[in-house]
C-alpha cells in the first residue's frame, strides 16, 4: 500500500487496533471449533428418539411388581395393595424430606410407576421381588447407602435428597401403559 509510509507517525495505535481485531476474530474462530466436539458428546438423535416402552399390566397381580427397561434404566411398575395406598396417603406431607402427595405421583392409585434409580448416587434400590428388603417404610431400600423409600417411592430416611422420579407415561388402555 502506498500510504503506509505516510501513516508511520500514527502507525503504532493502528497496528495495535488491527491486532486486537484480528486476535478477537481468531479467538471467536478457535472458540467455535469447540462447538461440534461438545455437540457430538450430547445424546444423538437416535438415542433421543428411542424413548418409549410399552408395558402390559394384565399379568401383574396385586402386590406384585415388575421392572422394565426404559432409556437404559430400570422402571419399577408396582401394583399396590389397598394397605400400601393407605399408608402412602396417611403420612403428613409436610413432614417429608421432599414433600409430595401420593396423588401427585400416580395416575391411577393402584399403579405406581417409578424410575428405579436411587436419587442419591444412582444405585437400583431393592424391593421389587417379594423376598427383597423393602426398608423401614415398605417401599424400597437402597443397599448402597441406606436410603429408605415408602410405598409412594418417596424418600423417608437416608442420604437420598429426592423422591424416586416418576417417568412420563400414559395409559394406552386399562391394562397397558406406554412409558416415554
Amino acid at each position: 500500500m502506498a500510504d503506509t509510509a505516510h501513516a508511520a507517525p500514527d502507525g503504532a495505535p493502528r497496528r495495535d487496533f488491527l491486532k486486537l481485531v484480528t486476535g478477537a476474530f481468531a479467538a471467536v474462530g478457535v472458540g467455535a471449533i469447540a462447538w461440534p466436539f461438545i455437540a457430538s458428546l450430547q445424546p444423538a438423535k437416535d438415542t433421543l428418539a428411542l424413548a418409549s416402552t410399552d408395558v402390559d399390566l394384565a399379568p401383574i397381580t396385586e402386590g406384585q411388581a415388575v421392572t422394565v427397561m426404559w432409556r437404559g434404566k430400570p422402571v419399577f411398575v408396582r401394583s399396590r395393595t389397598p394397605k400400601e395406598i393407605e399408608e402412602a396417603r396417611a403420612v403428613a406431607v409436610n413432614s417429608l424430606p421432599d414433600p409430595a402427595t401420593d396423588q401427585s405421583r400416580v395416575q391411577r392409585e393402584q399403579w405406581l410407576v417409578l424410575i428405579g434409580i436411587c436419587t442419591h448416587l444412582g444405585c437400583v434400590p431393592t424391593g421389587q421381588r417379594p423376598t427383597d428388603t423393602r426398608g423401614d417404610y415398605g417401599g424400597w431400600f437402597c443397599p448402597c447407602h441406606g436410603s429408605h423409600y415408602d410405598t409412594s417411592g418417596r424418600i423417608r430416611k437416608g442420604p437420598a435428597p429426592r423422591n424416586l422420579d416418576v417417568p412420563q407415561y400414559a395409559f394406552t388402555s386399562d391394562t397397558k401403559i406406554r412409558i416415554g
Binding site: W35, P36, F37, A39, S40, Q42, A44, K45, D46, T47
Partner: peptide
C-alpha cells in the same frame, strides 16, 4: 453422519 450431533462435520 445422520444421528450424532455435528457428526457429519467431524
Amino acid at each position: 453422519m445422520r444421528d450424532v450431533n455435528a457428526g457429519w462435520l467431524i
